[in-house]
Amino acid sequence: MTEDPSKRRLGRGLAALIGEIDRPAAQPQEVKVAADGSLPIEFLSPNPHNPRRSFDEEELSELAQSIGKHGIVQPVVVRPAREQGRYEIIAGERRWRASQRAGLVEIPVIIRNVDDRTALELAIVENVQRADLNPIEEAQGYQQLIDEHSYTQADLGQIIGKSRSHVANTLRLLKLPDPIRDMIVNGSLSAGHARTLVTAQDPAALAQRIVEGGLSVRQAEALAQQPANENNVVKATPQRAEKDADTLALEKLLSDVSGLKVVINHKENGGEVRIAYRTLDQLDELCRRLQAS
C-alpha cells in the first residue's frame, strides 16, 4: 500500500516540533564592558524605584544636543539586573534618556554590585546633590527609605548631608493634598510656602491666595495662622484721626529745622515723634545736632 504523502509531511512536521521542544533554550547573551568602560545602551534599563519621576522635555532635548556634540562627560552608574545580561541604572537616568535621543549606541558606565537599599541611597544622594529632584520627589524618596529599609530621619540626614530638620520639613510636604503637591512640582509654589500650609484648615484656598498675591513665606505663615473664618476677610485699615492745626504746624517747624520728615502722633496720655532719614549721613547729622543742643 502506498503511503499517503500528506501523512509523511505531518510526520516530518511533528518530528521537527519535538526537536525544537527538546533543544535547550538559548541563553541570554552575556554583555561585557568594553575596554573604555562603555556598555551597549540597549542593555540598560531604568530603575523602577528611582525617586525622580519627572523629566523636563526641553532640558532633555538640550542635553541630547550637548551629548551628541561632546559625548557623556559623567558615566552612568549601574548594577547587574536580575535579568541576566542586563543592567539597571542607579544614577544617571536623565543622561541615558538624552543619549538615546542623541542616537548613541554605547554609553560609559560604572558598575556597582549593591543591594536595593544601597541603590536607592545612591540614587537619592546623587539627585539631591545635583538638585535634580523637586521637593515632592525628594520627600517620596526619603519616605521610601523609611518604609522599606527602616531608616530614621537622623540616618537620612547623615547619608544625604542635610540636617534632620531639613529631612523632617521635607517629609511634611507629603501631608499636603495632591493639588498643592502638583503646584510644588510645577514650580508655582515653593517648598517654603507649602510647608506653611501643612496645618492650615483650607490649604488649597490659601495656596491660591499665596500664588495670586505673590506673598512672601513670612506673609504666608501669618496668613496660615489666622483663624479659618478670617483667612478670606480683608481687614479694613483703621482711619487715622485728623491732626489739629497746632500739631501740623509743629511737624512743619521741626521738619524745616532738621531737614528731615517729622511725624507727631499725639494721644491723650502722651505720644511719639518719628523722624525719617534716608541715608546714614542724615542720621549722623541728626545725632550731631541733638548732642550739640
Rank of each mutant, 00 (worst) to 15 (best):
R8T: 14
E138I: 08
A123T: 06
R101N: 07
E121P: 04
Q219K: 09
E121I: 09
G157P: 09
E59N: 11
I72R: 02
V76N: 06
D246L: 13
A241P: 06
R112T: 05
E58R: 15
G259Y: 02
Q219L: 07
Y142D: 04
A194D: 05
Q74W: 13
R288A: 15
L260K: 06
D132R: 15
N186A: 07
A222S: 15
G37E: 00
K7E: 15
D284G: 07
A228V: 12
Q74K: 15
I275Y: 06
E93Y: 13
L223P: 00
L63E: 03
T2F: 13
A119V: 05
L156T: 00
R181P: 02
R97K: 15
A119G: 00
V109N: 06
T247M: 05
L189E: 04
I21T: 09
D147K: 13
L60C: 09
I18H: 08
I136E: 04
V73P: 01
Q27M: 10
E121A: 01
A222Q: 15
D4M: 05
G71L: 03
E138N: 06
T196K: 09
V125F: 08
L173Q: 04
I110M: 10
V109T: 07
D147E: 15
D115N: 12
V76G: 05
R164I: 11
S150Y: 12
G141A: 01
G68F: 06
A200P: 00
A131G: 12
Q129W: 12
R130K: 12
E58C: 09
V31A: 00
Q239W: 10
L206R: 03
P179A: 06
S66R: 10
A35S: 15
V198D: 04
R289L: 12
N229S: 13
E57A: 15
I160R: 07
A168Y: 02
E212H: 10
L189N: 00
A228S: 13
S216M: 03
L250K: 13
K252H: 09
I184A: 01
S6R: 14
G71A: 02
D202Y: 07
S258T: 14
L145S: 02
R274F: 11
R112E: 13
E230L: 12
E62F: 14
T196A: 10
L120T: 11
L122T: 07
E272A: 11
E88R: 11
G141F: 02
L122I: 12
D56V: 10
E148V: 03
E138C: 08
S216A: 02
D56H: 11
I184R: 05
G92P: 00
L254H: 04
I90N: 04
K252N: 09
R8F: 13
G19N: 06
V77E: 07
V128N: 04
A154M: 08
P48L: 05
E88N: 09
E221C: 08
G141S: 00
K162V: 08
S188L: 08
S190Y: 05
I67E: 06
N50A: 10
Q65N: 14
R130W: 07
R101Q: 08
A200L: 06
P48K: 01
